[in-house]
Design a protein around this nucleic acid. Structure first.
Length: 568
RNA sequence: GCACCCUUAGCUCAGCGGAUUAGAGCAUCUGACUACGGAUCAGAAGGUCGCAGGUUCGAAUCCUGCAGGGUGCGCCA
């Protein structure tokens, strides 16, 4: 929280206590005014607390005003049935931004936690496609934000590197494989091999049997098949790394499904021994009493003895708890899996592992027809191709407007804008809504988009270049001399709270909306308040505002996983 | 059948631990081009917040029911 806002909230708490309403009555409910005409910040605490205390809200509000101890911070007015409206003093505005001008952008949370953020999770031997965008972009943003506010974060890519598909892949490689193709386009070749073997097995029982045997050999640790499997995995990983590099996404751990393989048997046995799971129709299941889960058993071992997705997930939780001692684990996974997570979480609770699990769910990406996005041929759209197209489209716009810049810089700007636009379009939306992927809207450089936000930053950088001042010039923040300055200062003050909210609710769209609003405030300020033409203290003050704004925009972009550029 | 999610302006969406006259963007219309970057700004118009009840001094927000759309639900992941 911004230090000055914290002081204000404290002063409100004190005034409430002075009015006979103990601090235990809950938060002071101090927040920016919904409508700026009423003031800068507001509190409905008087009305909320009046109900419990069986007193008149207006009376409580009047008492708060009379006992207001934050005179140097804000003036209080009472409106309507008991609204408390606050108008910050100039001194408070200046003091609230002093830390930021000095480069301090965040105060660590009071109680840092250890968090595991589980996201992305592509499958080996397949290319990443649109279905992976949201998990990857959202998960990366959340790990950045959580780290930023001071939590200890472990990001983990739970890749799909084990399963029945490897039987067919091995058969495919042996019968139809081509080293040349595998070297030239590893993922493409692996997909082709799988498809080829799968098709062959449909019509030819011999192929199907061969795949089954190869899978069995692999599972039993046959060295040759293991070597092939490792090769598939390595080839896939380097393809993933290429995309992650381009997206600027990093993982602390990449513990795929195969890692947990040796633990699966023990997990099932332990759950049975503890009475959490039991045999049913030849399989092992967990049954629930909870409403909604009653008739929905959680299968952890098939009747043929094989483990399932659920088993691996349970083993994963156990391993994470034992290894990293996390307070929370966040699963950034498609909402369609919410039942699975409900069951998983309920099972873990009964198992008594003592960790808070959270499903950070999100909706699907749809095509213009409102059906899951596919290519014209009906295949999923590959992530690499999608990023390539985004950058190409951005490049066309950069070329059109900035022919004066060199080739290398234009390429770099296009990359930042193209990738940034795709990420931003995803993050700006409330995550649990499906979203319709439309190139024109996504890359429209108008509205609440990455280019708009980046442009505000670029304009500020341009001011500094033009100022002729040294980069480390000291500027001094003064009291607002214009309404636009005041609006900008107030907006800047909200930064810490917005970041905290994103961390608490795992909802990055709040940060996007904040940055968009901040960029708008800056543009408006820039329109009405000459910076470089101002003189003396005013020039210094306005440049200080520019500096804090640029720093905040840059910090926000970084949290979203967007790179910034100096010119565009 | 059961469960979860969604329904707010023409379109895409914020807001939903209740509160002062429901907000943005896009599209539409009007202005600002001797511009510290017009990839901008200012303004207008546009909504019985799916429907019906209920709780409350006060409901887009909480509760119940209904309708429409989506998703998922024993041996896939």
């Amino acid at each position: 929280m911004n230090p000055i806002i914290r002081e204000l909230e404290g002063a409100l708490g004190g005034a409430l206590a002075g009015a006979g309403l103990a601090g235990g009555a809950g938060p002071a409910d101090f927040r920016p005014c919904a409508d700026a005409r009423h003031g800068d910040y507001q509190s409905n605490a008087a009305m909320v607390l009046a109900k419990e205390a069986r007193r008149k809200p207006s009376e409580i509000a009047a008492a708060v005003r009379a006992g207001w101890g934050g005179v140097g911070l804000a003036e209080v007015t009472v409106a309507g049935p008991g609204f408390l409206n606050f108008r910050l003093t100039d001194a408070a505005l200046v003091r609230g931004l002093a830390g930021r001008l000095a480069g301090r952008y965040i105060e660590p949370v009071d109680a840092p936690k250890t968090l595991i953020v589980d996201f992305s999770a592509p499958n080996v031997a397949k290319s990443m496609h649109v279905g992976h965008i949201r998990s990857t972009v959202l998960g990366d943003c959340l790990q950045r934000v959580a780290r930023y506010v001071g939590h200890r974060v472990i990001s983990d890519n739970h890749i799909g590197d084990w399963g029945t598909q490897f039987g067919k892949l091995i058969v495919g490689l042996r019968r139809f494989g081509s080293e040349d193709r595998l070297a030239a386009d590893p993922i493409g070749e692996m997909e082709r091999l799988y498809k080829r073997a799968h098709e062959a097995s449909q019509s030819d029982p011999e192929v199907q049997e061969a795949a089954r045997l190869e899978l069995k050999k692999l599972q039993e640790g046959d060295p040759e098949n293991l070597a092939v499997w490792r090769r598939f995995r390595e080839l896939s990983q380097s393809a993933f790394d290429g995309i992650y590099g381009r997206l600027g996404v990093r993982f602390d751990e990449t513990l795929g499904e195969s890692f947990y393989n040796p633990m699966l048997r023990g997990v099932v046995e332990d759950l049975v021994a503890r009475g959490v799971a039991r045999e049913s129709e030849g399989a092992i299941c967990v049954f629930f009493e909870e409403a909604g889960l009653k008739d929905k058993p959680f299968l952890i071992r098939k009747s043929d003895g094989a483990a399932l997705y659920a088993t691996t997930d349970l083993a994963t939780v156990k391993h994470r708890v034992e290894t990293f001692r996390p307070d929370e684990i966040w699963y950034v996974v498609d909402m369609r899996q919410s039942l699975h997570f409900q069951q998983l979480f309920a099972t873990v609770r009964r198992w008594g592992l003592g960790v808070e699990l959270r499903h950070v769910g999100f909706g699907s990406i749809l095509g213009a027809d409102k059906r899951p996005l596919k290519t014209r041929e009906g295949d999923p759209v590959k992530l690499e191709a999608l990023l390539e197209e985004a950058v190409a489209r951005a490049r066309a716009m950069v070329d059109e407007r900035r022919g004066d810049l060199g080739e290398e810089e234009r390429r770099d700007i296009s990359e930042v804008l193209g990738i940034g636009s795709v990420k931003y379009a995803d993050l700006v939306q409330n995550r649990h809504l499906d979203y319709v992927f439309e190139w024109d809207r996504l890359l429209s450089f108008d509205g609440n988009t990455a280019p708009y936000v980046l442009n505000a930053y670029v304009r500020i950088q341009s001011i500094f270049r033009k100022s002729g001042d040294p980069e480390d010039a000291g500027y001094e923040l003064g009291p607002p001399s214009h309404p636009r300055e005041r609006e900008l200062m107030l907006r800047l003050l909200q930064w810490e709270d917005v970041v905290a909210q994103v961390a608490e609710e795992q909802r990055p769209h709040h940060l996007c909306f904040y940055l968009f609003g901040l960029a708008g405030c800056f543009h408006a300020f820039f329109e009405d308040c000459p910076v470089l033409k101002a003189e003396g203290g005013l020039r210094s003050h306005r440049l200080a505002l520019c500096r804090v704004t640029a720093g905040t925009l840059r910090a926000g972009c970084e949290l979203l996983g967007l790179r910034t550029v100096e010119r565009m």
